[in-house]
């Protein structure tokens, strides 16, 4: 296996009596698309929250980057983002007061530098940078098929479009790892196909992704490797086809019929 870009070891997180994560180990290699599946409440979103600094794990190590990487535990969310990890949210979290375009422009924050002084004096660099950020954001909107609603308030977009807008915002920071939390949830069949196409494109470009998803068609269609969580533990991992036939995985899903 190639060198891991993200290496999680012994990761544990409790909420009161609930063990949301218990001794989880997980690797994502450079350029790899890994799937993270498991019934509802298995701890998938909690894992994303620990990686991105939103939650502090009780135990464990999360290393990210080339040549052994850097420890992420203890960093604030914006510091994790600076290291090159972007994410989307299971319950979409757009900037509701802004247009679609502005949402994506905010995503370029880490790729731009204008400070207060250049803004106050409206220096040419700041204006050039602003134009650059808008063009980049327009390009990303076009990529996710939202070029026509650039000026619309984000909160008025249909649900499936909001999901795509979130992906565009995440891509705007030019991350080296993208964490997607159930991007296909609530999408219709056509939208799922479009999403699959987009994810494959990103994969071809060499972007590493970790994908939480219930829709096995999407998982099978893009993931090279799948890790299965149940009650906070890794119960299986491997190629998508193998994992799907694994009796422990089948049992975990049958034991929790609420999960699709």
């Amino acid at each position: 296996m190639p060198q891991p870009l993200l290496a999680i070891r012994e990761l544990s997180k409790r909420f009161g009596g609930v063990h949301a994560l218990e001794g989880v180990a997980l690797d994502v290699a450079e350029g790899q698309t890994a799937g993270l599946i498991g019934p509802n409440g298995a701890g998938k979103t909690t894992l994303f929250n620990c990686v991105t600094g939103v939650l502090r794990p009780d135990q464990g190590a999360i290393r990210f980057g080339r040549e052994g990487g850097e420890e992420l535990v203890g960093l604030a969310p914006h510091q994790v983002a600076q290291r090159g990890i972007a994410r989307t949210f299971q319950n979409i979290r757009l900037f509701a007061g802004m247009t679609a375009l502005e949402n994506v422009v905010v995503g370029t924050y880490l790729r731009t530098h204008a400070g207060l002084l250049s803004a106050a004096l409206r220096l040419p660099e700041a204006r050039r940078e602003e134009t650059w950020a808008r063009e980049r954001a327009m390009g990303l909107l076009a990529r996710v098929g939202l070029a026509d609603c650039a000026g619309q308030p984000a909160s008025t977009l249909p649900f499936g479009w909001q999901r795509r807008l979130e992906i565009a915002r995440a891509l705007a920071s030019d991350p080296s790892l993208l964490l997607l939390d159930e991007p296909a949830a609530g999408l219709n069949a056509t939208e799922k196909q479009e999403l699959l196409l987009l994810l494959r494109q990103l994969k071809t470009q060499g972007l590493a992704m970790l994908l939480i998803e219930h829709d096995m068609q999407v998982v099978m269609g893009v993931c090279q490797r799948v890790v299965v969580l149940d009650y906070g533990r890794v119960i299986a991992q491997g190629a998508p086809g193998e994992v799907q036939r694994d009796p422990r995985v089948i049992e975990a899903y049958l034991g929790a019929p609420a999960a699709a």
């Binding site: 939103v54 604030a76 914006h78 979290r93 007061g97 905010v106 924050y109 880490l110 400070g115 995440a170």
Partner: peptide, 24 residues
Amino acid sequence: RSRVGRAWAALRDDELAAACAGIP
């Protein structure tokens, strides 16, 4: 209306999403 101003607006709308987009 600057880059920093947009970041201010973003964190007013959703602090967590703003932080995850790299805004300190």
